[in-house]
Design a binder for these strands. Sequence first.
DNA 1: CGACCGATTGACT
DNA 2: GTCAATCGGTCGG
Length: 199
Amino acid sequence: MKKLPRSFYLRSTPRVAKDLLGKFLVRHIGRQVLIVRIVETEAYGHNDPASHAFWGLTKRNEVMFSEGGHLYVYFTYGMHYCANVVTGRLGKGEAVLLRAVQPIEGIDLMVRNRRGFMHRRNRKTDFLPDLTNGPAKVCKALKIQRRENGIDLLGNEVYLLNAPKLRPSAIATSTRIGIRVGEKTLWRFFIKGNEWVSR
DNA sequence: CGACCGATTGACT
DNA sequence: GTCAATCGGTCGG
């Protein structure tokens, strides 16, 4: 599989959010490689009151205004990081939040990165409930924090690999989670029936 | 400066 | 179901 090209990210944000489902996120940490499959996303547009970019450019959200295909990481609630894929052209200020992923490779390292995570593993399916079913859990498992803010996804540290597009019928749509404005917009997307999706 | 609060999580009634 | 943790970003004075 090849890296997603820049052009993938330079499209409408809800479109990118939907098309990111099923794609693989690769995270290199030194010699270690972690791979996950994206199963849940949320789009944040401009003119979107729920978006960090709604009130314009600030020091915190400046990466959101970079060219599509960069990683926007923000710190919240005094203890959590969340990761986004920047979309659109330079200055647009849009992004897709990675809400949940399915571990593919490096699961044991992800468990260690999650420190305090003690669920039992289902031996048949390898299913670890709650390991990566939330945006801050994803960052913890993949060791994505302030340092990773602004990384170019066409580089070699964090990047996305293409995968066959999912059937439209395999994708579900809903309102976004945890926001107090723009809560009626149907910009959350997830893979139907996937057990790694957040609750 | 001081105050408010968040694209969350985990612990607990 | 409820709620505290914990602190940087943002904004008002």
